[in-house]
Every structure is written in structure tokens, then in C-alpha cells.
């Protein structure tokens, strides 16, 4: 995948915009997922994901081809989301419960007439609880947990993305896990 990406980037640098479209196709789900788990709002996540790619396009000449492209791209995405969380809701994690129930949830993308089997409702409720627990995490723990357990990235890559020392990332993963445990152990 990296080789294809490097080739597409060279094409973009030469002015071929279609090549950028292929990069978007390759990474859109990953980037959207990071944004959604960080912001917990489908519209905000879509905006943030679009902005991530626009920013990547405009700054593609600053990307160092010797480094992993996904690291560079995910850094743009996480920084954008962290900015949004800080700007919009300085105490986001404190009113997360209100934000979560009032915003879009797992139920809202089912069409209204759908009847759900019981176990599916149950699993949606579990999902909802998990998302709430993630959302209740302060943003510095949320970003490492999303990158580690939803994107399944190695700790060193998370350190690169967030531009933090490896030790700090480890501490945040530990604390994030403990905080999640408190919310999820009774499930």
C-alpha cells in the first residue's frame, strides 16, 4: 500500500488531482473513524475528515516521503479534532452525557420503521455504553485509546502521530484503560 501511496503523492505533486482522489479513497474510512470516535457527531466528523484531506492536499509538499504517510495524515486528523473539542466545548467531557444523548447515536441511523430483534437492541445498547465511556474520557486519553484500540496502531506510531514521547503515550493508555474499566466493568 505504501508504494502505491508514494506514487500517487508524486503524481499529486506534479499537479494530478485525480491521484489525490485515490489517496482519499484509501484512507477515508480510517480518517472518518478517528474523527467520529473523537467528536461523536456524524456531521462534525464528516466536516473534520473532509478538512483533514483538504489540509493534507494543501500541505502535501511538506510531507516527508521517507516517513509513513498514514502517520502524517492521522496527525492532521487528530490535531484537527483536538482543536475542535477545545474550541467548541472547553469542558466537553464533563457534559458528554448530555452531548451524547442529544447528538446522533446508534439508533438514529436506523430508519424509523425498522423493528429490531431483541439481541440487536441489546448489542446497540452495549455499543452505546462503550461509546459513552470513550466520550467521557478527557481528550488526551481519548486520542490514544482511539488510535490504539479502534485504529489498532502500535504505541510508537501513536507517539509519532501525536508527537509525544513514547513514555507519555504509555501512561495515557494506562490511565485511559483504567478510566474505561470503571465505566465498563459492570457490562
Amino acid at each position: 500500500m505504501d508504494l502505491i501511496v508514494q506514487r500517487r503523492i508524486r503524481q499529486v505533486l506534479k499537479g494530478d488531482q485525480n491521484a489525490f482522489g485515490e489517496i482519499v479513497e484509501l484512507y477515508k474510512d480510517k480518517v472518518y473513524q478517528i474523527c467520529f470516535r473523537m467528536l461523536w457527531d456524524r456531521h462534525e466528523a464528516e466536516d473534520a475528515a473532509q478538512e483533514t484531506f483538504l489540509k493534507a492536499f494543501l500541505n502535501i509538499h511538506t510531507y516527508n516521503v521517507d516517513k509513513k504517510f498514514s502517520t502524517w495524515l492521522y496527525r492532521i486528523a487528530t490535531n484537527l479534532c483536538i482543536d475542535k473539542i477545545r474550541k467548541k466545548k472547553p469542558d466537553y467531557h464533563l457534559d458528554a452525557e448530555i452531548a451524547g444523548t442529544d447528538g446522533l447515536n446508534m439508533y438514529s441511523h436506523l430508519s424509523s420503521g425498522d423493528q429490531l430483534p431483541e439481541e440487536e437492541v441489546e448489542s446497540l445498547e452495549v455499543q452505546e455504553t462503550i461509546h459513552q465511556a470513550i466520550l467521557l474520557l478527557p481528550e488526551k486519553y481519548r486520542s490514544v485509546i482511539v488510535l490504539k484500540y479502534i485504529e489498532e496502531l502500535p504505541l510508537q506510531e501513536i507517539a509519532n502521530i501525536l508527537d509525544l514521547p513514547l513514555g507519555t503515550v504509555k501512561t495515557r493508555v494506562h490511565r485511559g484503560r483504567e478510566a474505561l474499566r470503571k465505566h465498563l466493568r459492570h457490562l
Binding site: D29, Y32, R37, R42, L54, H131, L187
Partner: peptide, 24 residues
């Protein structure tokens, strides 16, 4: 261990339809 399994079970989601065209 259970917490990790639960977080990892958070269903994976995809970018909305027409996403790439909007970015382009």
C-alpha cells in the same frame, strides 16, 4: 481485559457515501 474487548468491539464505521467526491 474485558474493557479492551468491549472497546475493540465498537463497530467499525465507514465514511459517508459520496465522501471522496465532496473532498475533491
Amino acid at each position: 481485559k474485558k474493557t479492551i474487548a468491549l472497546v475493540q468491539s465498537a463497530s467499525h464505521i465507514e465514511a459517508p457515501a459520496g465522501f471522496t467526491a465532496k473532498v475533491m
